[in-house]
Design a protein around this nucleic acid. Structure first.
Lengths: 345, 345
DNA sequence: TCGAAGTGTCGAAGCGCTTAAACAGATGTC
DNA sequence: GACATCTGTTTAAGCGCTTCGACACTTCGA
C-alpha cells in the first residue's frame, strides 16, 4: 500500500505538504505542487479512506436510503440512485446504499459511526419516522419527496401538482370535456403518498378551472385491474374522451383495452401519461406524457447535501430548502382534438 | 460522539476489553461482557467506521459496481442491488454503490483507498477490462455474469442455457413443432453478451434434440420493432405456433399484436417468456415463464466475497468458484397444446 | 535598518480504533 | 511449595491521515 509518507519521500517534502497539496487548504509553491502531483501519479497514490475520515472527521460518503418495496416505478428509482451516485462523485463523494428495512436505526447507525457525512432519503412519507432521528443526531440530509415538517431540512421533489395541472390544460385545450384519471392502487392513496395526492389535487384544481368533468379511479396496474377500472369508467361516463394515466403498469393494458373496445387513439380518445419519456416512446401510438427528470431529482438532492455540509463545516446552520422541479409535457401521438360527436349528457 | 473510551470508562474496564467484547476475538468473562454490552447500549455506542478500518485494515464495505446504461431489464438490476445490500448487512458489511462509468479506474480507486474490502461487479462482459485490475490489485471480487477467464475469481450467474432448454422442452412437450425465438436487439448479440448467447445456444441444442424447427429473430423491444419482427416471422414461417420471448420490452407488444392479428393465446399460439415471475403475472393471459432468482444472484455474490475475504484473512488463497443458478419454468395461461391444424409446410 | 507582515514548509499531536505483548491472579501439576 | 498453565484484563504501539502552531525566509513600509 502506498501511503502519504511514500509520496512525501518520493517528492522530497514532508507529508503535511503532500496533504496540503491534495487538499489545497494552504498555499503551496507551484514548483512543489507539481513535484508532489507527479509523485502521486507515479506511485498511484490514493489516500486511505479510513485514515482520512478519522483525521478529518468527514468520510466523504453520502448514504442513500432506498425503499425496499415500493409503489414507485422501479426504473425511476434506479435512475435516481444512479444520478445520486454520479452527482456525488462529481463533488468528491461516494455513495453508500442502504435499504429502508433498517429503518430509523439504519440512519442512527450510519450517522453515529461516522460512515456517512449525510443521508439522502428516498420515498419519504409525509410523517416519516426517520426524520426525528435526523434532527436528534444533527445529521445532514436531503429528502426526495416532501415531508410534513420541512423545518431545517432540504427537500426536493417533482411539482406533481403542476404535472396534474398540465394534463388538465392539455386535454382542455384540445376540447375534451370528460376526463378519466387512472391513478395508483387504492393503497397508495390510503397511505397518503404525497406524490399521488398532489398530482390529483393539481389535476382537480385545473380541471375545475377549465370546466372539465372528471372521474378519479384507482387502478392496481395489472391487466385485470385496468380492465375493471376501464369498464367502470365507461359505464359511469360513456362520453369520456380523455384519459390521464399515472400508474405505469396500467398504460399497456389501457391501450390494449381501448383498442379491443373499438376506440382508436387519438381519434376517439386521447391518452396522457404521467411517466418517463423513455417509457412513453415505447407504446403505439407514442404517448403524450408529462415528465419530470429523475436525474435532476438525484442531482439536486446531492447538491443540497453538499451545500449543507459546507455550511455546517464553516460553523453555520444550514437553512431549510425546498425545491420543486417543474415538469414538462411532451406532445406525441396519443392526444388529439376531442371528437365532434355530441357528449351524451 | 461516543467513543470506545467512553464505553470503557462507563463499564469500568479498559478500551481494549471493550474492543474484545465487540469483536469476540478473545475470551472475556460473562460478567464483564454483560457490563460492557449494557454500557454500549446505554450510551448508544457505534464504533467509528474510519478508525476501525484504519486500525483493522478492513472497511467492512463491499463495493457494488452497476452498469450505467444496460440492456438488462432495470427492475432486475435493482432487485440484485437490493439483494446484495441486504445480504451484505447480514454479514456485517455495508455496500458502496459505484457506477460503471468510472471503469477500471473506479476499481483501482476503491481498492487502493481501502474504501471497500471487495467488489461485486454486475454486467460483466466476456472480456472485461476491470478483471486485470482486480488481479493486479489482489482485490477480492465476485462477478455477476460469467467472465471469459475465471481463474482465481468467483462468478455467479443464471444457467441461461438451461433456461433456453426448458423453453424448448416445454413447447415440444405440448406438441409444438415450429417455434420463433424473439431475442434481444442485434446490438446485444454483436457485443457477445453472455446471457443472450447462452440462452439461445441452450434453446438451439434442445430444440434440435427434440426435432423442433425454429427461427431466432432479434427485436429491440419497442412496439414498432416487435411488429416488424413478428411480421417477418409469420411471413417466413406461417406455421409457427410457439413463441419464446427473452426481451422484456417485446412481451406487451407481442401479445397485443397476436391478438390484433386474430391469434388467441394459448389456443392458436403459445408464448413462453424469459422474465421474472412478477412481470409474467401482469399480462393477460398470465405468462408461462422461465425465471431465475435475481435475489439469489445477489446473495450468492455476497457470500462468495465474504468467503474469499475470510480465506484471504487467514492467509489463504481463495479458489475460483463458479455458481450457476438453476432456472425454473412456471406454467401459466399462455401455453397450451399445439393446435391440430396441419402445419402448412 | 529594523520590525511587521506574508509566504511556504515542516514537526508533531491526535483522530478512535485494533492487537501484540505483558501482566496479574487463579488453577493445576509434580 | 515451586513452577508451569490458563484465563481475563491492561498497556501501549501503531494504523495513515489532517491540521495547528512553529519556523525560516522573503518582502515591505517606515
Amino acid at each position: 500500500m502506498v501511503t502519504i509518507a511514500d509520496v512525501a519521500r518520493h517528492a522530497g517534502v514532508s507529508s503535511s505538504t503532500v496533504s496540503y497539496v491534495l487538499s489545497g487548504k494552504r498555499a503551496i509553491s507551484e514548483q512543489t505542487r507539481l513535484r508532489v502531483q507527479s509523485s502521486v501519479r507515479e506511485l498511484g497514490y490514493h489516500p486511505h479512506a479510513g485514515a482520512r475520515s478519522l483525521a478529518a472527521r468527514r468520510s466523504h460518503i453520502i448514504a442513500l436510503m432506498v425503499p425496499l418495496r415500493t409503489d414507485v416505478y422501479v426504473p425511476v428509482m434506479m435512475e435516481i440512485a444512479i444520478a445520486v451516485t454520479t452527482a456525488a462523485r462529481r463533488h468528491g463523494y461516494d455513495v453508500l446504499l442502504i435499504t429502508n428495512d433498517e429503518g430509523p436505526d439504519g440512519v442512527r447507525r450510519i450517522a453515529a459511526s461516522g460512515l456517512a457525512d449525510g443521508v439522502v432519503l428516498m420515498d419519504v412519507e409525509l410523517d416519516d419516522e426517520r426524520i426525528p432521528v435526523l434532527r436528534a443526531q444533527g445529521t445532514q440530509a436531503a429528502l426526495i419527496g416532501l415531508a410534513d415538517d420541512g423545518r431545517e431540512l432540504s427537500c426536493v421533489d417533482h411539482d406533481f401538482a403542476a404535472a396534474g395541472a398540465l394534463c388538465a390544460d392539455h386535454l382542455a385545450d384540445l376540447g375534451h370535456r370528460e376526463i378519466a384519471f387512472i391513478g395508483y392502487g387504492s393503497g397508495v392513496y390510503h397511505r397518503h403518498a404525497g406524490y399521488a395526492e398532489r398530482t390529483i389535487a393539481g389535476f382537480r384544481g385545473r380541471a375545475e378551472e377549465r370546466g372539465l368533468r372528471f372521474l378519479h379511479r384507482t387502478c392496481e396496474g395489472t391487466y385485470e385491474s385496468t380492465a375493471g377500472t376501464l369498464a367502470r369508467v365507461l359505464a359511469d361516463r360513456p362520453g369520456t374522451t380523455g384519459f390521464v394515466v399515472q400508474n405505469e403498469g396500467a398504460i399497456g393494458p389501457l391501450l390494449s383495452l381501448l383498442r379491443t373496445s373499438g376506440r382508436t387513439v387519438p381519434e376517439d380518445v386521447s391518452v396522457v401519461a404521467l411517466c418517463q419519456d423513455q417509457l412513453a416512446e415505447q407504446f403505439a401510438p407514442r404517448l403524450t406524457a408529462v415528465t419530470g427528470s429523475a436525474q435532476d431529482l438525484g442531482r439536486v438532492a446531492v447538491e443540497q447535501i453538499v451545500h449543507r455540509l459546507a455550511v455546517a463545516n464553516d460553523g453555520g446552520r444550514p437553512a431549510d430548502d425546498r425545491v420543486l422541479l417543474t415538469p414538462a409535457l411532451t406532445v406525441r401521438d396519443s392526444t388529439g382534438p376531442a371528437p365532434n360527436r355530441p357528449s351524451p349528457h
